[in-house]
């Protein structure tokens, strides 16, 4: 098990960094993931970014890179690949996933605004909840038509919603503390489900 050697890590960083600034940009990332043979739209790339706690979309600064690798105790491409692959199971743990999910909000959000714009939100949800939430399609379809931006509160509570409410929405209580957008979604989805049932 190779440990962490600052020198190797720096040379690894330099291999991908942009010419004039000390950070890995989109181009560098493409090369890095190419060498790691990981597809760019694989969720694990996000997990890696979360692990490095990168602050800016599609960018890794030198500090972030080095301290991240130090924490993972790796400094060459092969061991980095296996460490990254090891991140995958994290999303099956609710607590870890929740932290990751909330981190994504700030990571993808345009830092000028408090809310996340609709297109980004849809993309994030599509990426994160793809295999987790049965009615994701309905939800995306619904917010497309009924929302213009997503607040951090709604984003955060939505995860609880996907976890705790039954797939047929039975027992959903719209007088409870759910955000109004979710209340409206349940109405919408109930209607849609009923329609589908009739068709069958």
């Amino acid at each position: 098990m190779p440990g962490y050697r600052e020198k190797d890590a720096i040379s690894l960083f330099n291999k991908y960094k942009e010419e004039d600034v000390d950070k890995i940009g989109l181009d560098g990332l493409e090369r890095l993931y190419g060498d790691l043979s990981i597809s760019l739209d694989d969720i694990v790339t996000l997990l890696f970014a979360w692990r490095l706690n990168t602050g800016t979309l599609c960018e890794i600064t030198k500090d972030e890179f080095l301290s991240g690798l130090r924490g993972m105790r790796v400094c060459d491409i092969r061991s980095l690949k296996s460490s990254i692959e090891n991140l995958r199971p994290l999303i099956y743990d609710q607590k870890n996933f929740r932290d990751f999910y909330l981190w994504c909000f700030d990571y993808f959000r345009d830092s000028r605004y408090k809310t996340m714009d609709l297109e980004t939100a849809k993309a994030v949800w599509a990426q994160l909840l793809k295999e987790q939430y049965t009615h994701l399609d309905l939800w995306l379809e619904f917010i497309e038509a009924n929302a213009c931006a997503i607040s951090r509160d709604t984003y955060s509570v939505f995860l609880n919603f996907t976890w705790s409410v039954a797939d047929d929405f039975s027992g959903y209580d719209d007088t409870a503390a759910w955000p109004v957008l979710i209340d409206e979604f349940v109405e919408y989805a109930r209607g849609k489900l009923a329609e589908r049932e009739q068709e069958i």
């Binding site: 607040s151 509160d153 709604t154 503390a177 759910w178 955000p179 109004v180 209340d183």
Partner: peptide
């Protein structure tokens, strides 16, 4: 619902 909206 109006109250909820305001809370949010």
């Amino acid at each position: 619902r109006a109250i909820k909206n305001r809370i949010e």
